[in-house]
């Protein structure tokens, strides 16, 4: 009985949250609609002309319109931000470091990288930069925090495009002390970073496509019946960057496919019982140059 009641309460709670969510969505849709905006801004003009219909009952008082207008403005700003985020996929924002002893007053520049994978926006990746350097290089940025996975060479990219300022030594210690400060290039850094992230996700996507084309996901359950030896049983990424794939056949052959940054096939080695099995490799590739071609080929074969 008690559990019944609990279930009921849980159900109702779930309904409340879903209804609230719907309410939010409807609110924002209504607020962004141009007609609503028009309605909201209209009452400002009519009072100047006294020739309005006497609808004092209908027109909401100013105290109600003001927050609505504010909300509407907020909504519009958000919509614009979303538009930029969706189209440019590389946006910046400002944040504040909550640490009271943070450098530069806790000012943080955030870079947001959107990733579109399988027709869906993933949670964006963030890189948060601050300006910790004193003296002449004080405008130089440095990566403070980030949410990129470890397989993105962020440190290397930061070393290339956001080098730390070379400290200016006092006196004539080294002749090259006047060496030009290395310029930082946030734009190139962000673009290169995004490129790496997108490549990585494309590689992951292509692995999933390969698996699907080879029918690995589907046939898992129906194992055992009719083991044709040429069937692929497993394709998995073998390294952090998903550049190398392990391929396993039903008859025990294993292969390693190495792809380049952009999904071009660099090398494929298949090992059978008696050493290298070149024929199987040729069978799998069929003259393909890119991994996507292999996907297509497998899809037509299967």
């Amino acid at each position: 009985m008690a559990s019944n009641l609990d279930d009921e309460i849980d159900d109702l709670q779930a309904r409340i949250t879903s209804l609230k969510k719907q309410l939010h969505i409807h609110t924002s849709t209504l607020l962004t609609a141009p007609s609503t905006r028009q309605l909201l801004t209209q009452p400002d003009n009519p009072p100047t002309t006294t020739l309005t219909l006497p609808r004092s009952k209908d027109t909401p008082p100013k105290t109600q319109i003001q927050p609505l207008l504010a909300q509407s403005a907020l909504q519009e700003a958000h919509a614009q931000q979303c538009l930029y985020r969706a189209c440019a996929t590389l946006t910046t924002f400002r944040a504040r470091d909550p640490d009271p002893r943070a450098v530069d007053g806790g000012a943080i520049l955030g870079v947001r990288i959107e990733v579109l994978s399988r027709a869906r926006f993933l949670r964006p990746y963030y890189v948060l930069l601050n300006r910790p350097f004193p003296g002449p290089g004080s405008r130089h940025l440095r990566v403070h925090r980030h949410t990129l996975p470890a397989c993105i060479p962020l440190a290397g990219l930061a070393g290339r495009y956001l080098p730390a300022p070379t400290p200016v030594k006092g006196g004539g210690g080294d002749g090259e002390g006047k060496k030009r400060q290395q310029q930082q290039d946030l734009g190139r850094f962000a673009r290169a970073l995004r490129r790496e992230v997108v490549r990585y996700h494309h590689r992951l996507g292509v692995v999933a496509d390969l698996r699907k084309a080879a029918g690995i996901e589907g046939r898992r359950g129906a194992e055992g019946e009719g083991e044709e030896p040429g069937r692929l049983v497993d394709i998995t990424p073998a390294d952090a960057e998903a550049k190398q794939l392990t391929i396993e056949w039903a008859d025990g052959r294993t292969g390693r496919l190495v792809m380049g940054d952009d999904g071009e096939i660099v090398k494929l080695v298949v090992l059978g019982e008696n050493g290298r099995d070149r024929e199987a490799g040729r069978d799998l590739l069929g003259g393909a140059v890119r991994v996507e071609d292999v996907v297509k080929r497998l899809a037509t074969l299967g």
Partner: peptide
């Protein structure tokens, strides 16, 4: 907390 840019609800 996906924060997709297609979500029009103001967070």
């Amino acid at each position: 907390k996906k924060e997709t840019p297609l979500d029009l609800v103001v967070p």
